[in-house]
Write a protein that binds this DNA or RNA. Structure first.
Length: 619
DNA sequence: GCCGTTTTCGGCCCGACTGTTTTCAGTCG
């Protein structure tokens, strides 16, 4: 049974986009955006949820529930069909061009008949845009450049693994400036999204101008997109956009909250601020002045300050000077700003880890003191999937890996070299026997337990590299699909289920075979896999390689719900790859994983008991 | 269209930058 949420989410997103293009009421548009987000992170498959419980999902009311029900019953949503006939095909595509929003896209279509990026390009070449109201030659040139950049890449998201070194390089350069008190990257990279749209860099400095100037003229920058007093946007030499904000050191905490996001999280906590008679922006948390102009009397009743009144006063029609109307940061007394924790505390919230800031219930949990104690890299006691130079693609000897593991404070690691199923790489049974002798010779000099392990290949028919009698000699077995990734869902599910049934397979490695930004991973019936894992006592791996991060976040949530044990593994092939433990833990945090659900956050005795338990159950 | 540590109705986050304007709309995050 297919998981319906992804399709539903896409449909609600399309409704929201088409409504926005149709200039529907913006709050209605946002309701659909929020519904799409809520569906995307829902733990339950909405197609299996009793219809009456749909509205128990936050952001889903009666109207949304009816549309979900119609989709599940009929495979269509009337509202969406209607919108599709109203909004010309192609206009939605136009709004994908950065800098081109719904209003302009619709106008260009209406005036020039433009209905695709290609026809937009022709209109720009023909200098037709500059004659339209509100547009000019500069806009034409800007759009031309944007379309060129779009054409170079099929996807405008960059794997975080590629963005991080660029962000660190930018930060290191800015940190050298004498004016820079603090430098950090924020945004989706700090939240550890698996892909990022841009890099957000925050600098604390009393004098912003030299910092902005330094970025504009940096060797790392190819093109300056926007240059203001507070904000600079550039395209880096490696093609990724970076945004720089410079703030006063006293505003560091509020700025980090604002710049880390997510947008949905920011909106949630800003709404919370408004309900408390406060206003939150990147400069701090402030008291909201009554009547939108006079300063609040200290200790005055906040209840009589109408929420939104200050904002309404700045709408068109307001006759006050602009600088007074939009100087929100200067109107009320400062409540908090210096550190992130101060800002959250002033909103009666515990500090929320960046990886949780997606408006998926973390604000409510922080208010209730119910935030989970999420797993960190420091909780890991060992690694249950790493390669030595005994098999073809591992680069490092057992000795140096063991020393490195010891220096990280880990108690154990599983040397999981490939076997004969991968002929280019793997060891045969005799090879593993020789490796076993080497392991014995290694002893426990470093105080680390080295588990005798193998990464088995799951063949097309679900068979493993060795028979049970050979498998029984290993301390720990990871099994994974490495070949024939193009098989259909039924076939992939069946072969993985076969592997799970083996009494000697203790974990399934990188379940879907995805490579972020390169290949999506094959389809598999996750429900069936989870059920089999739970019944047999088999763990699922969270592969910490930043190229993989496989399981996906939503799959981890479902594994937690199904009661399946997880591992967080480095899949290291080099010493440096051991740092993947950090990526794996941060990725797991996004799914709210706690240490008790991660096998390698437990002592080695627990790992051995996990192995023994399965052999007893399945043997 | 959703929702309530004020509310079942009346609200709904906030600011920066650009290009085209002479006071602002559109877009973005």
């Amino acid at each position: 049974m297919a998981w319906a949420n992804e399709d539903l989410k896409a449909h609600f997103e399309e409704i929201a986009e088409l409504m926005e293009i149709s200039e529907e009421d913006r709050y209605r548009v946002r309701a659909y955006q929020r519904a799409a987000e809520a569906i995307g992170v829902a733990h339950a498959d909405l197609s299996t949820l009793p219809r009456g419980e749909l509205t128990s999902v936050k952001g889903i009311g009666d109207s949304m529930a009816a549309k979900i029900a119609q989709y599940l019953d009929e495979g269509r949503i009337d509202l969406l069909e209607e919108l599709r006939t109203k909004v010309p095909a192609g206009v939605r595509e136009l709004t994908r061009v950065p800098g081109l929003g719904p209003k302009t896209a619709m106008m260009i279509h209406h005036e020039l008949g433009v209905d695709s990026v290609e026809s937009l390009q022709r209109a720009i070449d023909g200098q037709q845009l500059r004659h339209l109201p509100g547009l000019g030659a500069k806009m034409e040139e800007k759009l031309r450049g944007t379309i060129e950049r779009m054409g170079a890449k099929s996807d405008d998201r960059t794997p975080a693994a590629d963005a991080l070194p660029i962000a660190e390089e930018l930060c290191a350069g800015l940190a050298e400036l004498s004016q820079a008190h603090r430098v950090a990257y924020a945004g989706s990279l700090r939240r550890m999204s698996e892909t990022v749209g841009d890099i957000d860099v925050l600098v604390a400095a009393a004098d912003a101008a030299p910092v902005h100037a330094a970025l504009r003229t940096s060797d790392l920058v190819r093109q300056v997109l926007a240059a203001g007093q507070r904000k600079t946007s550039v395209i880096t030499a490696r093609g990724l956009q970076a945004d720089l904000r410079v703030v006063d050191p006293d505003a560091w905490g509020a700025a980090m909250v604002y710049f880390t996001g997510s947008k949905a999280h920011n909106i949630r906590i800003r709404e919370r601020a408004v309900r408390r008679g406060l206003t939150l922006n990147e400069y701090g948390l402030f008291e909201r002045p009554a009547e939108g102009r006079a300063e609040a009397e200290p200790g005055s009743e906040r209840a009589d300050a109408e929420p939104g009144e200050g904002r309404a006063a700045a709408e068109p029609g307001d006759d006050r000077p602009a600088e007074e109307a939009d100087a929100g940061a200067a109107t009320g007394a400062m409540v908090a700003s210096r550190d992130e924790a101060d800002v959250y505390a002033a909103l009666d919230l515990a500090w929320i880890a960046p990886t949780l800031r997606e408006d998926t219930g973390e604000v409510e949990a922080a208010a209730d003191g119910a935030l989970p104690r999420i797993v960190t890299e420091a909780d890991l006691c060992g690694d249950l999937h790493a390669h030595s130079d005994w098999s073809g693609d591992g680069k490092e000897p057992l000795e140096s890996l063991t020393t490195a593991v010891a220096s990280r404070g880990w108690q154990y690691w599983a040397v999981s070299d490939h076997a004969i199923g991968l002929p280019m790489n793997g060891l045969d049974a005799a090879g593993f026997a020789r490796r076993r002798e080497a392991l014995a010779a290694l002893g426990d000099a470093a105080g680390v337990v080295v588990l005798d392990s193998v990464e088995l290949n799951i063949a097309e028919d679900g068979k493993l590299d060795f028979d049970d009698d050979i498998l029984a000699e290993f301390d720990w077995c990871v099994a994974a699909v490495h070949t024939l990734l193009d098989r259909d869902e039924a076939a992939q599910t069946e072969r993985v289920l076969q592997a799970i049934m083996s009494p000697h397979v203790n974990a399934i490695g990188h379940l879907t075979g995805r490579k972020i930004g390169k290949r999506p991973g094959f389809d598999i019936d996750l429900e069936a896999v989870l059920q089999a894992c739970e019944e047999t006592g088999t763990a699922l791996e969270i592969n910490g390689s930043p190229r993989r991060l496989d399981l996906r976040e939503e799959d981890i949530r479902r594994a937690l719900d199904a009661g399946v044990m997880l591992t967080i593994d480095t899949d290291a092939h080099t010493l440096g790859d051991l740092d993947n433990a950090r990526w794996g833990a941060l990725h797991a945090q996004r799914a709210w994983v706690t240490p008790d659900r991660v096998l390698n956050c437990q002592p080695v005795e627990t790992v051995r008991a996990f192995v023994a338990d399965k052999r007893e159950r399945q043997g």
